[in-house]
Design a protein around this nucleic acid. Sequence first.
DNA 1: CAAGCGTGGTC
DNA 2: TGACCAAGCTT
Length: 352
Amino acid sequence: MIPDSIEAARRLLSWYDRHRRDLPWRAKPGETADPYRVWLSEIMLQQTTVPAAAPYFRNFTERWPAVRDLADAPLDDLLVAWAGLGYYARARNLHKCARAVVDRHGGRFPANEAALLELPGIGAYTAAAITAIAFDRKATVVDGNVERVIARIFAVEEPLPNAKPSLRRLAATLTPDFRPGDYAQAMMDLGATICTPRKPKCMLCPWAEYCEGRTAGIAETLPRKVAKAEKPTRRGVAYWLLNPDGSVLLRRRAEEGLLGGMAEVPSTSWGPELPGEAAVAAQQPLPARWRRLPGLVRHTFTHFHLELEVVAGQAGADWRLADGTWVPVDRLGDHALPSVMVKVVRHALSHA
DNA sequence: CAAGCGTGGTC
DNA sequence: TGACCAAGCTT
């Protein structure tokens, strides 16, 4: 158990000072944090690893150095820049949030949790993180790392997500009044580098002697989680359609839902079974003779597996009638293609 | 409020 | 190699 939460916080901060990681969005010691950069990094890091987010962060801050720049940019420019990072609602909310900060707050992020929570794309975790890291005000930051650290320190055996309220309460009892920003980052760094999901490095942990999970020999098994449902497989056929200029037909997906607002190679609907010839003909973007390309494009989303067969066709004189945009192959990079569609494009180019 | 929402890395 | 995982939010 933790006999003295102030002493525990001091120990964690001492460890943090010695092992602070140099990350692209992190202010150097003594520097003042930029709320815009803190916000942008926190949105990018939602359910996303540091190595995946880092190049996107560099690109965004170079193109849009301040929140006003982001607010003034067209949404489509953000979507193209976000393509490949996933969870595209984040990019749409990023734009909404930038506009809200400009319109409602004069271009400055509000310095309190409640006001931050009102902004699009900012939930409990992100509001607390910005409060602590950008403004150095006390806030209890609870992300997946913190949940793991707290579950182990207090040997919480109740499975997630039920345990969330308890873990939050326990985390709050440890949050000190001093160095709020450093403490928040220290907790997350501890989870990311020492108190890792597998093979935690307890020998290096500044809190090892407090850790009830370690004492009980169950630290590595925590936090417990309820088993997730198995992912179903959905199947469809994608249409690789060229016009007489050699341009490819792309469409824009609906603004809401899966891959909302992103570009796609047109396809049949995705169902349990691969669509037959009749369905392929019924849903084709233009009448064409379709040639089946060998192999399948496989992709896994959060909640289902996808298998796409790709068919190639040549549009005739009526190609202008197609619903969508004709894009020269060497300009496909200008469009907001999610990773699954990049796979389809690569598949088509290598087999067609 | 459970379910929907991406992707690339890891073991 | 397939399941699991990562600095969650929205509806």
